Amino acid sequence: MVNENVKNGIIFERGEPNTAFADFFVGDSYLNMLTMEPIPIGNVTFKPGCRNNWHIHKSTNGGGQILLVTGGEGYYQEEGKDAQKLAPGDVVVIPPNVKHWHGATKDSWFSHLAIEVPGENTENEWCEPVSDEEYSKL
């Protein structure tokens, strides 16, 4: 039996408004936690123009994050590097302790699976928003 969502181009349910992390996003996003154990995996969906703040997945050993793009168009950028455009099928491996952000393009919804890589003494440090000026240059 074909899942109707997959048939319509939706792989995972969008989830609820991402109110728990709304302070760390510019724009509206949605979160559907697919698993919590043994590894947290969340489906994050961004409305057009939405992006998360700069942030760092800190760890003393291991850790980081993996993004699996499942829909729409978005961006990923590490501090000091050019932003890269993302599309379905793209994979981004984010090393621990690297400041970065990700989000939708201004004209497209964007969805990715966010996989938290296990590590020691892991924590997420949220930093400043990606400014409208920075974002508009992309």
Rank of each mutant, 00 (worst) to 15 (best):
M1Q: 14
V2L: 07
K7W: 09
G9L: 07
I10A: 04
I11F: 01
I11W: 01
R14C: 05
R14I: 10
R14Q: 14
G15Y: 02
E16D: 13
N18F: 15
A20W: 09
A20L: 03
F21S: 05
A22N: 05
A22M: 01
D23F: 12
F24I: 01
F24P: 03
G27Y: 15
G27T: 09
S29W: 13
S29R: 03
Y30K: 06
L31C: 10
M33Y: 12
L34V: 10
M36E: 13
M36C: 03
P38H: 00
I39G: 02
I39C: 15
G42E: 11
N43R: 03
V44I: 14
K47R: 10
K47N: 15
K47V: 06
G49D: 12
G49F: 10
C50Q: 02
N53A: 00
N53M: 01
N53Y: 14
H55M: 06
I56R: 12
K58P: 01
K58V: 02
K58F: 02
S59I: 07
N61C: 07
Q65L: 11
V69R: 04
T70E: 03
G72Q: 06
G74P: 03
D82H: 09
D82A: 13
Q84T: 13
K85W: 03
K85T: 09
A87H: 10
G89R: 03
G89S: 05
V93E: 14
I94G: 04
N97L: 11
H102N: 13
H102E: 12
G103I: 09
A104S: 15
T105Q: 10
D107M: 00
S108P: 04
W109P: 00
H112W: 07
I115T: 08
I115V: 12
I115N: 08
V117P: 06
V117W: 09
P118E: 11
G119D: 00
N124F: 14
N124A: 09
E128P: 00
E128A: 09
P129K: 08
V130S: 07
V130K: 05
S131T: 11
D132C: 08
D132A: 12
Y135R: 03
Y135P: 05
S136P: 09
S136I: 14
